[in-house]
């Protein structure tokens, strides 16, 4: 089972895995940069196979699709904040704006749409930008092959960190992502999110790392699965 996960990559690229294996392989894929790189080439190959049997669709399909999308809202990579503490709840709109700023300006690969929001976000945010603006703020990011990314900005001087999860693959079966701050006393829950989320972590100066696990809806008291990502602070 552990030995031959890599042998699932080629069938995966053709959507030829049974559902349980598919789930298992996707979990592996997130942690396997070599698999991600190879998969891109396999998918490009499969794309040629699909392209090779192109066929003009009925003309009516075009107008139906265009009519449909005109009334279909888009899933924007807007960050919906999950505040665990009451003091943070009141800050949610501000945090959401600031998170858009964060996602758009930190690191490479941020989407232009988010950069467009940067100006107003910059003006309104306070808590998060104070972390961002800290002279010692350090950013770490991790992109998932199944979609989305996580960015962590930590400022030891402010004893705080901000974590932004952007557009991660939605989990099936009533599962959520749960964020943990880990220090010598063990992991401490920072909150959960379904696809995107941002949270401020105080006391980050004493933490060793931040981890994200997949947990049942509502979150767990302690992590019950291996982290999908661990970021050292």
């Amino acid at each position: 089972m552990t030995t031959d996960l890599h042998t699932l990559l080629a069938p995966y690229s053709l959507d030829a895995l049974e559902p349980p294996e598919n789930t298992r392989f996707e979990a592996h894929l997130e942690q396997c940069p070599a698999c991600q790189a190879e998969l891109a080439g396999f998918q490009a190959t499969a794309t040629r196979l699909g392209d090779a049997v192109a066929l003009t669709p009925p003309a009516t399909m075009r107008s139906r699709v265009l009519t449909e999308i005109a009334r279909t809202p888009q899933e924007r990579p807007v960050v919906t904040a999950i505040a665990q503490r009451r003091s943070l709840r009141s800050a949610v709109p501000r945090m959401a704006a600031a998170a858009a700023f964060l996602v758009g300006t930190i690191g490479v690969g941020g989407y232009a749409i988010e950069r467009d929001n940067a100006h107003e976000a910059d003006a309104r945010s306070t808590t998060i930008t104070s972390v961002l603006a800290a002279p010692d703020a350090a950013t770490t990011s991790k992109t998932f092959s199944t979609g989305g990314n996580v960015r962590l900005v930590a400022s030891p001087a402010q004893d705080s960190a901000v974590i932004v999860a952007n557009d991660l693959a939605r989990l099936k079966g009533h599962k959520v992502y749960q964020v943990w701050m880990i220090n010598g006393a063990g992991p401490k829950s920072q909150g959960t999110f379904t696809s995107s989320g941002t949270m401020i972590m105080h006391g980050a100066g004493g933490a060793d790392s931040v981890a994200i696990t997949v947990e049942p809806e509502g979150g767990s008291k302690q992590p019950t699965t291996a982290p999908i990502v661990t970021i050292a602070i």
Partner: peptide
């Protein structure tokens, strides 16, 4: 096919050119 294009519309902001071509994203 219609569902695919509506999904493309809804999720286009997730497209990441660094991870493959647009055609590959849609056909996958």
């Amino acid at each position: 096919s219609q569902e695919v294009f509506i999904q493309v519309w809804k999720t286009a902001a997730r497209f990441d050119a660094q991870r493959g071509s647009a055609k590959s994203w849609v056909l996958t």
